[in-house]
Design a binder for these strands. Structure first.
Lengths: 199, 199, 199, 199
DNA sequence: TATGAATGAGTATTCATTCAT
DNA sequence: GATGAATGAATACTCATTCAT
């Protein structure tokens, strides 16, 4: 029954990731010790090093997983509407993510504090296919007829810049209310996105 | 000669700030210890605590001072050109800052890692008039005839968002070459700024 | 006007003692730093060392002064009653002190934590005549007709032991409610004193 | 062989307690640093925190253990004499303890400086049954026929007060020779105890 | 006398990492 | 694989004391 053992093994790792996630959110990355993690995960200290190189290793895991999850979730929600207007779909996705961050300030804080949103792509390149689905979402935007005839690289930069800007605005407005709270920034932000995407 | 003592005192503080600055750049904020700082500054450990509450206290000092300095420098350079076109002036300022960051990657890394650009305003409000000149730069943009008739708050948000976006793009492209290197991003970025500012 | 200077000088010392007293009570002896003291006293750090060797030096000053003050105060109150019964007078004095400690738990804690009541005599021997009045009180008991014919040394030991015991019981019962609260201990304690003094 | 590991673990703890004991005696509690302790105990600094919360934590351990030990030892010695007279037995126990303190001035100093003898009961309540034997000694006095018919609470107060007084007198006379050395205080002290216990 | 800037040894505590079992 | 006792370097922060002014 190798499967059972595999599952048990995987359970320990899962348990460590889950514990880390909770603690990073609650106490922040720096103030969370490996000791905290293994205690919460109910495994021995040495076990941590069986699965991860160090704390950052777990963190990367988490950020990647979460970012990917949110993006895919947002895309699916957009897809279900059955709307064909790409600009509106992008804004829908952005809004979905903004709303997610409004509800999950700590996630935003965690991601922003230690990693920059767009870095995800670097990692995805490395770690595919585990996070392939997120890549597919990006692809589906890039190959949309709306951008027909444009250099795909340029389009990618455009999307990248939009995501980047949104992340930045979210962080400033949701966490620090600068220059205004997110609900007052939203119409403004979406206006800018429309301008950027206008052909 | 009370002045001499005051000067000596100021020198110690300066020395601590300088040492901190160098070390934060070289080793990063987290990996720099107070011990490192005082050793490099050639002062006793206790002296550090005479002038600063903790490491973050020095950091805030540094970031504020540098950000203010760069902004003012960029604005002056723009001013000297004697060009009246606001949009072009803004792009000039942005470009000045981008070029600065290209030359000083570590500064960018330092600022971005621990503080968000636009937060500076919060601090300036507190610490004026020491950093009043930076504020004046912002004011001069806000009150430019180009924005005549627009809600100043809206204009501020616009400028804020542009600065924010630039900082983010700089960080991604200069530090991580994502999605492309900064020189390939620049025309693109400035195009977006023009779109955003277009009336 | 040497007098004025003398007074000013004395004021600094007074100010240091007062500040120390307040701080020892509030934060405890160990957790009070010389820095705390000079800040509260509004004098420069160096000034402290002009008047005291170290922290303990101030403490001894305080304990001595306070102990002497309480004892004399208690004795005077007893004296005013015009009662001749020595045993009752001693119990009256003890009760006066007990009541004082009930109202000033912190004083009790302070004295007991760092110095033992009866040590005062050692100091009085050294520092007379500043605290001579307290000595007189002791004398007046020692030479009371009640003890006529007894070895004065023996009488002193008796009184000493009583004071000692009272201090100990006060500390245990007032601070720790052990073995019972002070009001339940009092009749008991006074009974024991009567037994001890009975001829 | 799980036992071996357990034993080694216990040895480390023992080693820390022993080292602390020696150092507290030699240098006093306040002047002993954790560093001193671990160096003497030949364990790593972190190991200390594996077994104790802080310095006071070790101290409580030590005081409790020693007090209990001395009391039990004294009681056993009294028991072996086979004498039935309670008053004489109490005086024997007291004398045993006094003699112990005469031989171990530093122990007295240590105990008295930081903890009050009778507080031990509070702790014993918490930590039984490890120190149950000491409790039994107290019980055996409380339930002695000599006190038949008296309120046990009152009897406890009486014993408490006697112990308290003895501790205080020991401290003053053994450590400070005040008001006289212990050998001159002893007959006097025992006389007082007899008076107190006389029905 | 009085000041207060400067000192730097001293201290408690944390924590990533190892390794024998 | 899994454990958890042991490590000890690292670190932040305190504070009594000095001394030039």
């Amino acid at each position: 029954m190798a499967g059972k053992l595999q599952r048990q093994k995987q359970e320990k790792k899962e348990s460590l990731v889950d514990a880390s996630y909770d603690l990073f959110l609650k106490k922040g990355f720096n103030k969370t010790s490996i000791d905290d993690i293994v205690k919460k995960a109910n495994v021995a200290k040495g076990t941590f090093y069986l699965y991860f190189k160090d704390k950052s290793d777990v963190m990367e895991n988490i950020v990647l997983r979460m970012s990917s999850r949110i993006l895919v979730e947002a895309y699916r929600a957009a897809d279900e509407r059955g709307c064909d207007d790409l600009v509106e779909n992008i804004i829908f996705v952005v809004d979905y993510i903004v709303e997610y961050f409004k509800r999950n300030k700590l996630v935003l804080q965690m991601i922003k504090r230690d990693f920059s949103w767009p870095l995800i792509r670097e990692k995805i390149d490395e770690l595919s296919p585990e996070y392939g689905e997120a890549l597919e979402v990006l692809e589906s935007f890039l190959t949309h007829p709306y951008f027909a005839g444009q250099d795909p690289d340029e389009v990618f930069k455009l999307l990248f810049l939009i995501i980047d800007m949104c992340g930045s605005v979210c962080y400033s407005s949701i966490i620090h209310n600068q220059p205004d709270d997110i609900d007052h920034m939203k119409p403004f932000l979406y206006g800018v996105i429309r301008k950027i995407l206008k052909k």
